[in-house]
Design a protein around this nucleic acid. Structure first.
Length: 271
DNA sequence: ATGCAGGCATTCA
DNA sequence: TGAATGCCTGCA
């Protein structure tokens, strides 16, 4: 058990922010996270967060995974108080953080996410993990499936994942797996690139367009300037930022603003 | 029952 | 270059 006092951290909000599809509430206030082949359970009361892992596991992995080293209070302090929309969005999404997730996992996840709804995205990912991921047992005895490696998917026929309900996205995922597995695409190298270059490399993957590339850049590579524009964000831009989003002001943290807006659109009651 | 859900590739002007 | 169109599937 590792307990921390954390500001601007809400596991419930992170779970519902739509950047991770393998995080869920398993009991009242108790959450489960599967990241790559790791498993974690955690609980929160106010700003006290209890991680069910050793101090070493927290320091070596989960601390970075939850982006604890970034000061989100300082980020929110940069929001223009005259921007009532963004202020309200950040106020509601006060505990959202940009996770540091696995690159391969995010490529697959956001290939699946396109033209899709959240319920089915979760189901698709569950299906491929249970079919092609390694079964594991957590330290508390819970069984779970690791995210399938690129190698595990690289030998499939292009339409094999339609059995996992991916639909036309099946060939996108299988082709990506082949590219990564063969070394044609070097994930470690992409990880070393800056935002613009990493984005350009990701766009070369079949099925990866600008929106998906930006999600991968933001949620795996932690390029906080990435600003994924989907249908929701596009509507917000047309409604609230007719003269364009203030990119200059939020340079370097645009992705965090995007998450506040996205969360607000998903969970804000008014509108 | 059409339209759409956190798009993208392809085609055609 | 930019605008239209089909695509797996499920849900309202």
């Amino acid at each position: 058990m590792t307990e921390k006092i954390l500001e601007n951290f809400s596991i419930a909000q992170i779970c519902e922010s739509g950047q991770c599809f393998r995080m869920e509430e398993i009991q009242d206030g108790r959450y489960q996270v599967i990241a790559g082949d790791r498993y974690l359970e955690l609980e929160q009361q106010g700003n006290r967060v209890r991680f069910d892992c050793t101090e070493v596991e927290y320091r070596d992995f989960w601390r970075h995974y939850f982006d604890i080293e970034t000061d989100y209070g300082a980020v929110m302090a940069q929001i223009n108080p005259n921007d009532t929309y963004l202020t309200a969005a950040a106020q509601l999404a006060w505990g959202v953080r940009i996770l540091n997730q696995d690159l391969w996992e995010m490529i697959v996840t956001f290939l699946i996410s396109q033209q899709n709804n959240i319920v089915r995205i979760r189901r698709c990912i569950k299906n491929i993990c249970e079919t092609y991921g390694t079964a594991k047992t957590a330290s508390n005895g819970v069984c779970y499936y690791a995210f399938p490696t690129a190698q595990a998917l690289a030998g499939l026929e292009e339409d094999a994942l339609m059995a996992c309900n991916l639909g036309y996205r099946s060939k996108y995922v299988v082709r990506a797996a082949k590219a990564v597995s063969s070394g044609e695409v070097d994930l470690a190298w992409i990880s070393s690139l800056n935002y613009q270059k990493a984005r350009a490399e990701l766009l070369k993957l079949f099925g990866v367009g600008e929106k998906v590339a930006d999600c991968i850049c933001l949620f795996a590579l932690h390029h906080l300037d990435a600003f994924p524009v989907d249908t929701h964000i596009r509507q917000v831009m047309e409604q609230h930022y007719k003269r364009g989003f203030p990119n200059r002001r939020y340079k370097g943290i645009r992705g965090i603003m995007q998450q506040y807006i996205f969360y607000y659109e998903l969970h804000g009651s008014e509108k």
